[in-house]
Amino acid sequence: MRNVRSDGEARPWLKQELQDDMDEELEQEIDDARVPPELRALLDKHEKSTIDRQFYFSELLRLQGELVKLQDWVEYQKLKVVVLFEGRDSAGKGGVIKRIMQRVNPRTCRVVALPAPSDREKTQWYFQRYVSHLPAAGEIVLFDRSWYNRAGVERVMGFASETQVEDFLRDVPEFERALARSGIILVKYWFSITDEEQQLRFLMRIHDPLKQWKLSPMDLQSRVRWEQYTKAKEAMFERTSIPEAPWYIVEGNDKKRARLNCISHLLSLVPYEEVPHETITLPDRVFDPNYERRTLAPELYVPECY
């Protein structure tokens, strides 16, 4: 820890800081648990998480502290890390990404979530629009969906021909081996949920005005084409899980366990050490006895409604 005050002074301050962290995570947890009245009966029959909430919060904060150490190590050693998050719609990719990003420095750890390709991008080499987002030395990039769109949604929805899909499945192992040779650490996660769990999560979004934006026509079609997605996933695993970049499956029915398991596993894949830091000392403020603070107009201030 980078000490900026004595232990006696730090204890109440640190306790308050930890409480603020807990409150922030609790806000997200309450949002996850909000149940529209139309779904209460269905949710009562649904299997709930068995992990203790206090244990979940304390483990999450501990793992997030380790993520900060990992990021320090990546910057210190000039490493390049890419993590792909794939899986069925509503499988929990976004929730894990949100928890990873919650405490780290967003300047050197960033999320890439690309929209559908433009007409111009459709004429480029398929991997081209992803290459520009790859990390430089000291950076971590999290892809919220990736070049594997071609093996999944594009294949199932008919946006790519079978020839294009076959070209992709043939090319992607060589592409990823080239990334590995360039020094990139590539990690690939697939988030898996059951048919019943996805149905419940989609219904939650349909009946929750704050989450309806998460549903797209493609999401709804993924329900209709569940089995086609399963076949596409199996073919993708068979052709693209290579020693340099194997697939790792995260069981996602229990959101809390999925978050802890994924973060813990990611930390295990990149050996890291704590980077030594100089003790930070807060300098004294320069005081000018002749300076008088100006009184600003009341209309400049945000009304204190709370």
Rank of each mutant, 00 (worst) to 15 (best):
P209Y: 00
W147A: 09
L114Y: 04
C305Q: 15
Y76N: 07
F191T: 07
L200C: 12
K214W: 06
A258S: 13
R145C: 11
L84S: 00
N253P: 08
H277K: 14
Q124I: 04
L220F: 00
P246W: 00
E273S: 10
T281A: 12
D20L: 14
S264G: 05
K256S: 06
G8T: 05
Q221A: 10
D171W: 00
Y291K: 14
P115W: 03
D171V: 00
R110A: 09
Q54G: 15
E24V: 03
V74P: 07
S146W: 00
I242G: 02
M204D: 12
F57S: 08
M204E: 14
E59T: 11
F191C: 12
A113S: 12
R201F: 13
S182V: 08
L260K: 00
L63W: 03
E238S: 14
P276M: 07
Q212W: 03
T230Y: 03
R120V: 07
G8Y: 00
L39M: 15
T295C: 01
K80Q: 04
A136Q: 11
M101I: 01
F127N: 07
C262Y: 01
I51W: 06
R145D: 09
F57W: 02
L215E: 12
G92P: 07
G138L: 06
M22P: 12
Y229H: 05
T50V: 13
K15S: 10
A136K: 08
T194Q: 08
M1D: 15
S58R: 12
P217N: 05
I184Q: 05
W247E: 03
G92R: 08
D144W: 00
E86C: 10
L142H: 00
R40W: 08
R129P: 07
R129N: 08
V68P: 09
R257N: 11
W125D: 06
Y248R: 08
V275I: 11
N290R: 13
A180M: 02
Y291N: 13
P276Q: 09
T50W: 09
D44M: 11
W13A: 13
E244T: 04
W247V: 04
I206K: 14
E244A: 11
D52F: 03
G138P: 07
Q71L: 09
A245Q: 02
Q221K: 10
I249Y: 03
R257S: 10
S90L: 15
R62P: 14
K98E: 11
E59S: 14
I242S: 03
Q164K: 04
V141W: 01
G95D: 02
V81D: 05
R223F: 03
R145E: 09
K15D: 12
V165C: 05
K69L: 15
P271D: 07
R257I: 10
C109N: 02
D32V: 01
Y130A: 02
Q28K: 08
Q128F: 04
V187C: 05
H207A: 14
F85C: 02
L215S: 10
S161H: 06
K80C: 11
V112A: 10
R181M: 07
V165Y: 02
